[in-house]
Computed example of a mutant assay.
Amino acid sequence: MAEALRPAPDDESWLPPDVAGTVVTVGTFDGVHRGHHEVLARLAGRAREAGLSSLLVTFEPHPLEVVNPDVAPHLLTPGREKLAALAESGIDYVAVVPFTRTLAGYEAAQFVDLVLRDRLRMRELFVGHDHGFGRGRSGDAQTLRRMGAERGFRVEVIEPVSLSDGHAVSSTAIRRAVAGGDLDRAALGLGRPYGVTGPVVQGEARGRLLGYPTLNVALESPRKLLPPEGVYAVRVHTRGGDFGGMCNLGPRPTFGDAARSLEAHLFDAAGDWYDQTVGVDFVARLRDTQRFAGVEELTAQLGRDAQAARRALQRAR
C-alpha cells in the first residue's frame, strides 16, 4: 500500500532515512485511470528491479487552480479520493506537494534539482510522452532526457494507453464523458465505475416516510465533478459491505427544494449509517429529475425506479 508523504517546504528530506533512492513519476494523476495504472505498474516494477523505492509526486491543489483558475477543471478524484485510488497501486510512496505560486515559478531544472533530487532522492524518472512541468511546462521529455544525461539520472518516456477504439485514455476525455452522462465511456477509461465518496449526514428523512429511506451523502470537495442531475442505479460501499441501490442527484422539486443533494436508497440493507464515509458508484442513469403532483405519484415512480435500478445492476454484474 502506498504511503502518503505531505512535505513541508523547509524539510531537509521528505522521505524516511532508510530510503536510499527513488524511481519517480510526476503528475496530477486525476482519476487514477487505466493509463495511470500502466505507468505506476511499470514504475513499481522498475523500482523493484533496481532495488529502489517507487514514488509518485502529485500536487494539491490542481496546478491550474493557481496559475489559471478560470480554466481549472472540476476533478475526478479530489483530495482523499485520489489517495484512496492510489493506495493499492503497488507503489511505495506518494508525495503530495503543495502547489503554490512560488512552485509555479520554478524552471524545470529547479524543480528537478530542488524537489526531485534533493528532497526525494530521485535516481530515475518516468514521464508521459506529452508531459511537461516547470514554468511554462518547459520540462518536456526531450529536456528531461538532456538533464538526465547531464545530472546522472535515467529518464524513461511512457507512451499513452489506448482503448479498443484507438482513443488514448486521458483525464480530460473521462471528464468529458462524466459531464455528458456517458458512464460506460467513463468506466472504460477509468477501469472502474465512476463514483463519489463522502460522509453520511443528517437529511430531512422524507425518504423514510415514503418507504425508501436514504443516505444523504455530502461531497468532500466542491471541486468534485458530478454527472448530470437525475436518478441513477448505484452501488454503495460501506463498512458493512457493498449494496446495490438507487440515488437522486440534484434537487427535490416535488418538495420545493432546489438545493442539489445526493441521496441513495440501499436495497436489502438497514442500519444507522450516520457519520460513516461511503462510496457511491454510478452504474446507470435511469431518468431525469422531475416534479410530481404529490407524494402518491412520487412513491409510485420510486417503485418503478427501484425495479429499473435492480435490472441495471443485474446487467452490470
Rank of each mutant, 00 (worst) to 15 (best):
R46I: 09
D184F: 01
G207W: 06
V97G: 00
V201T: 14
V32Q: 05
A306Q: 13
R310M: 11
A149K: 11
L103N: 08
V169N: 00
D118R: 15
L75W: 13
R135A: 09
V178K: 00
S164Y: 04
P98E: 09
G27Y: 03
L83Y: 07
F267D: 03
M1Y: 14
F255T: 00
V231G: 03
P98H: 12
V283Q: 05
R192N: 08
S53E: 04
R206A: 04
F111Y: 13
H37Q: 11
S138D: 07
R176M: 08
E65P: 04
G198M: 09
P16L: 10
G181K: 04
G189F: 00
G27W: 14
R235T: 01
D184A: 15
D184I: 12
E220V: 12
W273G: 00
A258H: 10
G244A: 06
L83F: 11
V283L: 08
I91E: 05
V57P: 01
G256N: 05
T100G: 06
R304T: 14
N68G: 05
P199S: 03
A284F: 02
D288Q: 15
G128L: 02
S138A: 12
Q276N: 13
M246W: 12
H74P: 02
F243K: 05
M122W: 01
G241V: 07
